[in-house]
């Protein structure tokens, strides 16, 4: 009796254990199910490289190149800002800050991670957007640059915490060895700690970028959402995520627009999948 019960319980545990695999597969499956149909109307190359995104014109033009470029532009901008600042602050928190400041700073970074993206988007709208508008004297502050700054900010918690872990996991005797040779603290960090933790820091950067590419609400609220190929960073752009979020409500289920938005979902899913798998490899390399 008890054995039978435990047998069932253990099967249930195993089922829940593999549930994550099941859900990832389910997500992929349903994106494919709804998204692949778009390729009946456009070819893969026209979809990925088409210059025009006019999903509701007749016939619809479903080229997502402007959206891809929008995402790339915003992401590059965010990466340029967030990588040095994020890694720098991870070094500061892990290696330099006194113990009391460490706790406060870590709490600050954790706090940032907890703020909902729609709140950050809202604050960005009322502070960052007018600022960008005035500084660069633009007709609108809803630009790729505003999006990059905002996203850089949102990527920080990921970059800082993963990079910090990477620094902590460097064996103590590396550092002690360097000090014993008379190196300054900075020389130790630069010559010993950073190279030793490089794969973890790389993973931190990748996960941060993954966060940026996937971010939706804040980016939709402050990048202006113009689906044209951007020439500079000071114009409105529309990202892949914002396109889905903004247009899904209007798309007719089973229509071409609907299929196209799911196809964008496939693209996003694959990007995040690749980033996460690679980052995971880097993290495991560090452990070994």
């Amino acid at each position: 009796m008890r054995k039978a019960k435990e047998f069932i319980v253990e099967k249930l545990i195993l089922t829940c254990g593999v549930a994550s695999i099941f859900f990832v597969a389910l997500i992929f499956l349903f994106l494919m199910k709804e998204g692949l149909a778009v390729f009946k109307t456009v070819s893969l190359s026209d979809f990925l490289a088409g210059h025009k995104w006019y999903p509701i014109s007749e016939p619809p033009q479903l080229g997502i190149l402007p959206l891809i470029l929008g995402s790339i532009l915003v992401t590059i901008g965010a990466a340029i800002i967030s990588i040095p600042i994020g890694v720098g602050s991870a070094i500061y928190i892990a290696e330099i800050a006194p113990a009391w400041a460490k706790e406060v700073l870590k709490a600050g970074v954790e706090l940032l991670a907890a703020i909902p993206s729609v709140v950050l988007g809202f604050v960005g709208m009322v502070t960052l957007v007018p600022l960008v508008k005035n500084v660069f004297n633009l007709p609108t502050g809803l630009t790729a640059l505003s999006g990059s700054i905002m996203l850089a900010f949102m990527a920080m918690p990921t970059i800082v915490s993963v990079a910090e872990d990477a620094l902590y996991s460097v064996p103590k005797n590396y550092k002690e060895g360097a000090f014993a040779l008379g190196a300054t603290q900075w020389q130790t960090i630069w010559r010993v700690m950073l190279p030793a933790s490089s794969s973890g820091i790389l993973a931190a950067v990748m996960l941060g970028i993954g966060r940026v590419i996937g971010e939706t609400m804040a980016v939709m609220m402050i990048t202006g959402n113009a689906a044209v190929i951007p020439k500079t960073i000071l114009v409105p752009v529309r990202t892949l995520t914002a396109t889905v979020a903004a247009e899904m409500g209007e798309a007719v289920v089973g229509g071409e627009h609907y299929f196209a938005l799911f196809a964008i979902g496939i693209v996003l899913f694959m990007i995040s999948f690749m980033i996460n798998v690679t980052a995971d490899l880097f993290l495991h390399k560090r452990q070994r």
């Binding site: 389910l26 709804e34 996960l207 939706t216 899904m248 289920v253 799911f262 995040s272």
Partner: peptide, 29 residues
């Protein structure tokens, strides 16, 4: 190993993709 990788990926899927997935599976299917 695959379970752990799946968890990592589940954590990394963009939130809007969850929206699409939820719509396709729960709302429509």
């Amino acid at each position: 190993r695959i379970i752990k990788l799946a968890i990592v990926n589940l954590a990394g899927v963009p939130s809007v993709v969850y929206g699409l997935f939820g719509f396709a599976l729960f709302v429509v299917f």
